[in-house]
Design a protein around this nucleic acid. Structure first.
Lengths: 159, 159
DNA sequence: TATTGTTATACTCTATAACTATA
DNA sequence: TATAGTTATAGAGTATAACAATA
């Protein structure tokens, strides 16, 4: 951070955004900062998880064991990146790699008891996090925002 | 990228998102990927600009000369990061540093003629980029989306 | 002594390429 | 020969700390 103003309001407050103010990319990037701060406070720090790590745990929690290939595909990570990620989580005892008996090349990534607990607890912490973010929005607006974001990315909205 | 399926559809298609599907942070991160791809296509590649570089040019275009301090504050960059950024843009001849006669410590960052041209042209290219992103949204939905994002971040909406 | 900006350095993240093992 | 996953290495990006110049 650059602004050390006690209030938190940056010195650049009166700088005009110009073209940026009409661009979705800009506003989405700003919103990403907001959500990242909330994530860090509610999940990142308390559970020692980075965003990808949390996402990975959520995928295993929802789907049961998955292959590295499935995880990499869903999280849009390259294979080597995923390997390092799995290494870290395995070292922390949150998951283990199980070889597939019918195909020795592939694996199943399985949550350990401890991993499952961290996954459950961090998923629960996402509730308060989301309510904090919703503070400036009505319930309907929150749903609308997610709907519009899904439309923008071309993905299907939840439920 | 991990999915090399010709269609582009990843192998992880049938993986459930679980908790993630209700989290704004997740959807905003996904949307950020979409907007980044659009940026890269319309502005990044054609003009050889990264997002911060484009943003910086837009700020100078809208405000005229600014100090590094103002730029760092608005773009949420640390001072050293901004120095390196300015170095690169200066080397490309897009801007120059002018010392402030009344305070030798501070500077004014000024667009060169060439920098102004690149700023103008890339600002113009943002139009088609935005229309491409809007393709899946109505005009009203686009405005609504920006409005909701501003509300989320606590910033004041444009206009 | 405080402030503006720079230099030096290191760390995190992620990618590409080369490799091992299974099939 | 193709696929799943790993190791090795390198490149971007950004941060913290120490520094120079001005006030």
């Amino acid at each position: 951070m650059t602004s050390d103003t006690p209030s938190g309001k940056a010195a650049g407050s009166q700088v005009s955004l110009g073209t940026l103010s009409g661009l979705m990319g800009y506003h989405i990037a700003q919103a990403a900062v907001t959500t990242y701060i909330a994530f860090d406070e509610h999940i990142g720090k308390p559970f020692g998880l980075r965003k990808v790590e949390f996402s990975l745990l959520m995928l295993l929690l929802a789907n049961g064991p998955l292959t590295p290939r499935q995880l990499a595909g869903t999280l849009t990570l390259t294979a080597p990146t995923l390997t390092l990620l799995l290494d870290r989580l395995q070292e922390r005892g949150l998951l283990r790699r199980e070889r597939n008996p019918s195909d020795g090349r592939s694996q199943h990534i399985v949550l350990t008891a401890r991993g499952r607990r961290v996954a459950d607890d961090s998923a629960a912490a996402a509730g308060p996090m989301e309510r904090g973010l919703q503070a400036r929005l009505s319930r309907a607006e929150h749903a609308m925002l997610i709907e519009l974001l899904c439309r923008l990315t071309g993905s299907t909205p939840p439920r």
